[in-house]
Design a binder for these strands. Structure first.
Lengths: 144, 144
DNA sequence: ATGGTCGCAACCTTTTCTGTTACGACTACA
DNA sequence: TGTAGTCGTAACAGAAAAGGTTGCGACCAT
């Protein structure tokens, strides 16, 4: 599916910030999170920027700057994160308009659009069932 | 999500073949289907080749060659098509292994893997509810 | 024998995602 | 007031995937 890792990395970042704050720290830096996720700080800042626009995190600038949660992990779901970092639909239509003179070419897009909408609704429902608190709990439950 | 159009095009092709056969024709050519989908015949042959490996269609070579359904549209679901044409998982993990020395970096992949598996199972369930017969019916029901 | 079609490999272009560098903006603190 | 540390963002490079295109051998009904 040519899947991307945005949802995974965003969840990683949120879990990291959440745990760090529970350990008494005020803010986490993109540098620290990037080290944990084994990627570049700019990648983290970009993703967290989208999460900030969605109201999930806040950032502070200047010296001693960094990122903090805007809400409890308990109140965030994977759906919130998904909608913040994934722009498009799950399934794409034809890249070029099908032949409108053909019965199938004419009816296929509305038909698939309808079907896909129902499926994406179910997907969103599933994503909404998983809170970031659950994610962190599962992360900490991993055998070492 | 960087979605691709394979599922859409494959469903288009199957609906086209199915309708064409109901009109009394034995086989459909990749050329005809490509015209309806407004793409290249090789693209169609590639996709139908995968559907053939999955036992959904058959092809005949030589003169008067082409494609036909291997089963009734009624007995094919979008899940059959999806599994035939989509190789990978819906969501990707980190591109590089996260820091195993970090609690989050260590536990994040098994945690997300588990969550994703449940979600993909639900997705498959939804796809399995839609038959290609339904798709064709919806296609023909489109207002003109 | 021939013409129409599939099978498949090879290559190109476009798009998307990720990584990287660079640098200005901002602010706590000395 | 200066400075160091961090964010914000633009710009570009590299990798990967999807889709489009061409070419040609294999196949077979006629």
């Amino acid at each position: 599916m040519s899947a991307n890792s945005r949802l995974t990395i965003a969840a990683h970042a949120l879990a990291w910030i959440g745990l760090y704050q529970r350990q008494g720290h005020e803010v986490a830096t993109s540098e620290q999170i990037a080290t944990s996720a084994n990627t570049n700080p700019v990648v983290i800042r970009r993703l967290l920027g989208e999460l900030r626009r969605a109201g999930l995190v806040e950032s502070r600038r200047g010296a001693g700057a960094g990122w903090s949660l805007a809400r409890e992990l308990e109140s965030m779901t994977l759906l919130d994160v998904y909608e913040a970092v994934e722009p498009g639909p799950l399934f794409a239509m034809h890249r070029t308009t099908p032949d409108q003179g053909c019965v199938v070419g004419h009816g296929i897009q509305p038909a698939m659009q309808n079907i896909y909408e129902g499926i994406e609704e179910t997907l969103r429902h599933e994503l909404a069932r998983v809170t970031l608190e659950t994610v962190l709990r599962d992360v900490l439950a991993a055998p070492r």
